[in-house]
Every structure is written in structure tokens, then in C-alpha cells.
Amino acid sequence: MKHLVVLAALLLSGPALAQSAGKPAWGPGADDAAFAAMLKTSFKDKGIAKLDRLTQDETQAFCSDPGAASGPAAAAQREKIEAANMATVKWPSDGKWLGDWKEGEKLAQSGRGLTWTDKADQPNGANCYNCHQITPQEISHGTIGPSLLGYGKVRGTSEDALKATWAKIWNAKASNACSLMPRSGHMGILGEAQIRHLMALLLDPQSPVNK
């Protein structure tokens, strides 16, 4: 049953991709049906990582053909996908934007969560240091994303800056259809309270990010 869903998702997304590329993206033998058949025999559930993770949403399907997704012909589709992701952003329920930067630092440090060796009841880390430089003290940081050193000093804490940063963390695809950054709020990786702490890490004048 699950496999059928995967297949259906692929078949639905396929034609749209091919159209935006102007020609089939993948060579002979790697069309949607062949690819879906390969997925079906190649994976199995393990721990919390179930087969339904192979069922793509529209954003994932679109971004899985980077050549087509980044081209000028797909500009309108990128905008559509960004708007759909923006519509998923849940704003802070009590109007408070900033939590405790120290809690945010702990979350940013932790890369744990959602692999097949993790347990469902463990809280997830936020993974931020895997991709970003954040505080000057932490030298072990990734470089897939831009440095966030001095983020709050540059942006300030205007309503616009608060909203843009919240939206980036909640759903990174709202401002960049095929961002490499996970959609932490939208995918249920992090909750509202955790995002508030990460907001403080980036924007609180007391945070080492802005010292």
C-alpha cells in the first residue's frame, strides 16, 4: 500500500518536472516507473525511519531535479512553492519571539534526532552547527550554510527581521524553494519553544553571536 503511494507521488510529480525541464531529466531506463520500482525493492522500515519517508511532497519532488528546478523556466513554479511553504508558517502563539539564547546554543549544538538509531521519545537537536558558523567560540562548524556570526547585530530586531528569521527556521523553503536547510517547524523537528530559543541565539544582543 505504502509503495503504491510512493509510486503515485512520483508519477504525479514526474510530468511537471519533465515539462519545466523541456526534456526528460533522466536518461533511458531511469523514468518515473523504473525509478519507483527501484525504490520499492531497495528500502525497508528500520526503527522510527519508515518507508513513508520516501513519499515526497511537492517541494521535495520539485527539488529532486536540480537542473530543472534552478532554471529560468521554473521561476514561476519556485515562487508557487515558496508561497505554499510560507502558508505553513505558524507564528508564535503568544506574540513572544525570543527565548533563552543559552538553550538555543544547546539545541544548535545537537545533531541528534530522526535517524533509524534514534528513539521517538528523545527530543531532537536543531543541527544548526552542522551547516553554519554561529558563535565565535565554536570552531567546529559546517559550511553548507552561510556564517551567522553577528546575525542580530546586522539585522536588528525590527518586526520584519523577527518575522523573516522565524519563517526561515520554521520553514526554510518559504524564502528559497530548494534551500538545503531543513524545514524545522513545518516537519515537526522542532517546536515553538525551541524555535524561540534559537531566535534568541541569533537575535538577542546578549547572545555571543552578537558580541
Binding site: 527501484m38 520516501l54 515526497q56 521535495q60 530522526l114 523553503k173 516537519m187
Partner: peptide
């Protein structure tokens, strides 16, 4: 397969 996105982290 190399470019196929999925899962909770995309």
C-alpha cells in the same frame, strides 16, 4: 537517486 530528496530533513 543521488538527487532524490525525502524524509523529515528534505
Amino acid at each position: 537517486m543521488f538527487f532524490f530528496e525525502g524524509g523529515p530533513y528534505d
